[in-house]
Design a binder for these strands. Structure first.
Lengths: 238, 238
DNA sequence: TTTGCAATGTGAAGCAATTCACAGACATGA
DNA sequence: TCATGTCTGTGAATTGCTTCACATTGCAAA
């Protein structure tokens, strides 16, 4: 079985497809590899299809005219991105960049469109995907509207802990390398403020800082301070 | 033909349905009327289905813990709302309120779910809907991240002009009654700042203020000041 | 190792926007 | 008609955050 096929099969969206459909799909896809820190697509690029991340990690972001940038999402293996091309928009509105060495499968527009028409399971899957991402953006919007810079940062740390947290002797270590600038770009703040707030949280004993590394030592207190139930670390990796 | 049927038929989502499907759908729906300024559903209400606005106007919003509120969207006749229940979330996350006397058609969860499975056109329509609303939220997020209070207000006015603007001798009159508080709730600001900025814009000769009424006298300049092409008023009503 | 560059830490100054407090205008129902 | 409540206008005080400027630290490539 081709590598490509395997990745397609392992994607939630296509799980329900028949072997024939899968092979047909596979034959129409292209695979590309991207080194670390290289762009996959840029704003105003031609939106030629939907992308499936096979390996690596991708970040989706957006620039303002003044050059400031925000990170909209991180994509993990098995997840789909660039899905706005399904809306019929001819151009991409954000950029995608490989954070790690990544391999990506491109599913051309006509192929996915056809699949959408034929397979209720795929179309249902896409609807769910859109809905989920929309919920996420809406939540983020609310945080931006209502909460202080500090609250937003704490909330982000908790979210990251849910997704990337690994329990250690000291506490929950975030297994994703993010600079203060990155954190700032996510919560819509500045590098300096993030540095300061993180410093405060450290002196308050809520976390420990390393270079591009954060360990949350008091999740309960952090979660409580932003009125969120302390998350149970569901899929903590070894 | 029943009133209900007529409204269903006139909704984009169901345009492609066969007469039988429509009748089947109609038999399972309920109609409710809401006076002005009454809630249709509230956060944490049981999400029993998707709603279709037949007549009137509805606003979708959200509260923070401290009681601040934001307006997420206005719904016009023929549009669907409360569609997050399609995601399987058992509870509503926002509130919906009738701004005008409104009549609403409730499509129960199981009915719409079944339809989604059977009709590709419906499922495609829902996907488009989700995608569209997500784009809108994302744009708003970017504005909130990157632009000043003033820019956001100007941008909002332009958007409102596109949707509700009516050309008059003085300029483009916004045919929707919004208080300064409402505007503030949309752009994520305070009533006072909105009052001030509107005042400034008036002395600059960009618009004229009335009680709950705004007339844009210099659309071009306004659009230019936020780097947006001046919109052509597509569907200006008499 | 050494060197260079990105990431982090810190303080001072400035500013946009919020908060608070109050006054007048208008509108609508009693 | 009056009266009450919502909507609008305005100023002073405060603040949370940004901006700018620079010092320091540590990783990674040469």
């Amino acid at each position: 079985m081709s590598e490509r096929l395997w990745y397609l099969k392992n994607c939630d969206l296509f799980r329900q497809l028949s072997p024939e459909q899968l092979t047909a799909l596979e034959s129409r896809c292209r695979v590309r590899k991207f080194p670390r820190n290289t762009p996959i697509y840029l704003p105003a690029d031609h939106a030629d299809g939907v992308l499936l991340l096979a390996e690596g990690r991708v970040k989706i972001g957006s620039f303002s005219e003044e050059g400031k940038q925000t990170i909209l999402a991180f994509i993990e293996p098995g997840e789909v991105f660039g899905e706005l091309s399904l809306m019929g928009t001819p151009e991409r509105e954000e950029y995608a960049e490989a954070v790690e060495k990544s391999t990506v499968i491109l599913i051309p527009n006509d192929v996915i469109q056809q699949l959408l028409g034929q397979c209720p399971s795929v179309s249902l899957g896409v609807t769910k995907l859109f809905g989920l991402r929309r919920q996420r953006v809406e939540r983020r919007l609310k945080y931006l509207l209502f909460r202080s810079n500090r609250d937003r940062l704490v909330h982000l740390l908790i979210e990251l802990a849910e997704q990337y947290g690994k329990p250690t002797a000291d506490g929950v270590e975030l297994r994703i390398k993010l600079s203060h600038q990155d954190l700032a770009s996510i919560i819509g703040s500045t590098r300096e403020t993030v540095t300061v707030v993180l410093g405060e949280l450290q002196t308050e004993g809520r976390l420990k800082l390393g270079r591009r590394k954060i360990t949350l030592t008091d999740m309960d207190q952090l979660a409580h301070s932003v009125n969120v139930a302390s998350p149970v670390l569901s899929r903590a990796q070894a």
